[in-house]
Design a protein around this nucleic acid. Structure first.
Length: 129
DNA sequence: ATCTTGACTTGCC
DNA sequence: CGGCAAGCCAAGA
């Protein structure tokens, strides 16, 4: 796995997600300035492996569900998140409205990320329930 | 260079 | 709400 600016930015963002908060693949992609790179975000984390010292468990899919079940890391991810206080609904999803991280502008600057991309992930989510 | 494959999303029925 | 098709784009099983 080659190093790339995209990859480094993704890891930087993921490392910045606080305990007990989550971000979707698409949101991470937006934050690093690649609005349609959700799949690539998943790839970066996949190549990282479940033992990496990066809070990869804080990245979930757009529906608030865990996409890692298909690679056998779903149970681990759920345990890790629950350990930091994230509660799951009966259908196995997380309420994004409650747990989604909203990085502050100053954080964006510190991470050397395009500031205007933060506004995008603050838009109202279609899954409010 | 070309084709396939996905830890994804969105849009259309 | 559910299923399916189509975008997406980087990596290479």
């Amino acid at each position: 796995m080659r190093s790339s600016p995209f990859r480094e930015h993704v890891l930087q963002v993921v490392r910045a997600i606080p305990r007990g908060r989550v971000l979707t693949y698409g949101q991470v992609a937006q934050l690093v300035g690649v609005p349609r790179g959700a799949r690539q975000v998943g790839r970066v984390l996949y190549q990282l492996g479940p033992t990496a010292r990066v809070p990869w468990q804080r990245v979930i899919n757009r529906c608030g569900g865990l996409s890692t079940y298909k690679i056998g890391a779903g149970d681990l991810q759920r345990r890790l998140l629950e350990r930091e206080g994230v509660r799951f609904r009966r259908d196995g999803t997380v309420k994004l409205e409650t747990y989604q991280w909203h990085p502050r502008a100053s954080t964006m600057v510190r991470l050397e990320l395009p500031e205007n991309t933060a506004a995008g992930i603050n838009r109202k989510l279609p899954f409010s329930s």
